[in-house]
């Protein structure tokens, strides 16, 4: 006998985690493109991430456990380096360094793909973000992602 089981899509999961991070805001946007195309761009850390995420110029994967957990080295536009722990799966990317947090999620919807972003500068020693400009930064990142996906779709 099968009892009904409820699941959570990646965007809902992002809302949940952001709710547990004081100062975090979630930006959301619907892209008209199919999930596969959107995630081909959004989930490409080394080649695409720096094109839409703020303060990420170059990102290089330095360790991969094969199960979705990665370690990446990032360089910001100011030249600073950071080491990120990353959880990367289809529709899901959650990464933190000592100073930064980035979360990105995507799920297929009838109109295309719903994407969501959260992140910002971490408050040292706490699961909290400095609440300055986080919403605007998220919206800008998703607008740039939309443009990148549209370029690919052409």
């Amino acid at each position: 006998m099968d009892w009904p089981v409820a699941d959570l899509d990646p965007v809902r999961r992002l809302r949940v985690l952001a709710a547990g991070v004081p100062g975090a805001r979630v930006a959301e946007r619907i892209l008209p493109d199919p999930f596969e195309l959107v995630w081909e761009v959004a989930g490409d850390l080394e080649r695409e991430f720096g094109t839409f995420e703020p303060d990420m110029r170059r990102l290089r994967i330095v360790a991969d456990d094969g199960g979705g957990r990665l370690v990446a080295e990032a360089r910001s536009k100011y030249g600073m380096r950071a080491r990120f722990d990353v959880d990367l799966r289809p529709g899901w990317c959650w990464m933190q360094s000592r100073f930064l947090l980035v979360g990105l999620a995507a799920t297929a919807v009838p109109e295309g793909t719903l994407v969501a972003q959260t992140g910002g500068i971490r408050v040292p020693g706490r699961s909290a973000l400095v609440p300055l400009g986080v919403r605007t930064a998220g919206e800008k990142a998703l607008a740039r992602l939309a443009a990148r996906v549209a370029e690919r779709a052409r």
């Binding site: 699941d7 959570l8 999961r13 991070v21």
Partner: peptide
């Protein structure tokens, strides 16, 4: 770890709890 501010631990905890709560909330 999550209480100490490690959001990767929060991420793992979410993965751990979701199926369990899905079995309770679904029915």
């Amino acid at each position: 770890a999550a209480q100490r501010g490690d959001t990767m631990a929060m991420n793992d905890l979410l993965r751990e709890l979701t199926p369990y709560l899905g079995r309770i909330c679904g029915p």
